[in-house]
Simulated assay, not measured.
Amino acid sequence: MEKLANLRRWARRLVKAERLLTISTILILLLLWFALTELKLVPEILVPSPNRVFTSFIHILQEGYKDNSLLTHLRDSMMRLLSSFVLVILTAIPLGLLSGYNSKVRAIMYPLVEFYRPLPPLAYYTLLVLWMGIEDSSKIALLYLAGFAPVFIACESGVRKLKQDYIDGAYTLGADSRQIFFHVVFPACLPDIFIGLRTAVGVSYTTLVAAEMVAAVTGIGWMVLDASKFLRSDIIFVGIIIMGITGMWIDAGLRAIERKAVPWKGKE
């Protein structure tokens, strides 16, 4: 009992130390940024001062950017990102699991995914615009394709590395193929599924800027691109910081869901 209590105290101290390291890293980066701009080591047009970035953020928060509020830009970007993410969940997870579970499905899906996965998004975005128009549908399709491959591969890999003993044991206990898939294969693959989902969010978010390059007038990615035309590095920094923070929030939400859905992860 005493040993368990000591272990818990050690774990709490470790968590506090990690938080302190995180806070220290952020403060050091801010101090370096402040010193770099105050000492004029780089032109302000390339690296704006923290005060200028904060002032621009307050101005955009109050006045908006190019006739649209900051909330509108953020809402439209999140709508495009989350819409594609929902489609990825509904399609990539079942197809990936089936591909790992069934060699015939894998023979159909794997070459298609492996063919388009290395392609740069802008290489086929023009085709999506021609086929689907310049509205949000082509942008969502681009983000969907960017996020589909990581989730599909993670799910397929999770099934294929599953120990055969688990499946054989379920068969021995009288389970049929459907029960094995839903009660053995799917739960065992949940850690890999969440890794794929977290990777997909990052890949889709990096593709968001490319998606908002064509015929968009709203979105955080569009705001960054538009500001770059006028060398407004302060607004570019504002957009990048907003995208980084929202990306961290989405990832934190996925990790929280993972802790609830996969409580056994890391406790083997």
Rank of each mutant, 00 (worst) to 15 (best):
V209C: 03
R178W: 06
F148N: 00
L197S: 12
V224K: 01
A188N: 11
W33F: 09
V185S: 04
L128F: 06
H183V: 07
G169F: 08
L162Y: 11
G219K: 00
Q179L: 05
S49F: 07
A216Y: 04
L27D: 10
I93R: 07
P150S: 01
V262W: 09
Y205D: 00
L46C: 04
K229N: 10
V262Y: 05
V217Q: 12
D67N: 15
L7K: 15
Y205N: 05
L81Q: 08
L20G: 10
S56Y: 04
W10H: 08
R12M: 10
Y205P: 00
I93A: 07
D168A: 03
S228H: 05
I167V: 15
V42A: 13
I45C: 07
P150H: 03
W249T: 11
R232E: 14
L122W: 08
M1P: 06
R255F: 06
R9D: 06
L70F: 03
I108E: 12
R75N: 11
L225C: 06
A175F: 03
L122E: 13
T55N: 08
L90T: 04
F181Y: 14
V185F: 07
Y144L: 11
Y110Q: 14
Y65W: 06
G158Y: 00
W33G: 06
L190C: 09
L97C: 13
P50K: 11
P150A: 04
A35K: 15
Y205M: 09
L27P: 06
L90G: 13
P94L: 12
I23W: 09
M109V: 11
S233P: 08
L87D: 07
L173W: 06
E44S: 14
P118W: 05
K3V: 02
R75S: 13
Y101C: 05
I235W: 01
L112E: 02
L20D: 07
A227Y: 02
I195C: 14
V217E: 11
F115K: 07
E156I: 00
R178H: 09
E135Q: 10
R198V: 02
Y171K: 10
L127K: 09
G133T: 05
N102H: 15
S83N: 04
H183L: 03
I242Q: 02
R255K: 13
V105M: 10
A175K: 03
G147H: 00
A256Q: 11
G174I: 05
V105C: 07
F182W: 13
K260A: 14
L27I: 03
P263K: 13
F181I: 05
G147D: 00
Y124Q: 12
R117S: 11
T126I: 15
A175N: 05
I93E: 04
I89M: 13
T246L: 04
Y124T: 05
K260D: 12
Y101S: 11
D226H: 07
G247I: 00
L119C: 12
A227E: 01
L7H: 12
L39G: 04
I257R: 09
D165K: 05
D251K: 05
L143A: 01
S84N: 01
F85E: 07
T37L: 03
P111M: 10
S157G: 12
A216T: 09
G247N: 01
I89L: 14
L29V: 03
A227H: 02
V262D: 07
G244A: 04
A215K: 08
R255C: 05
I45T: 10
N6E: 14
N68F: 15
E212P: 06
G239Y: 02
L162N: 11
E38S: 15
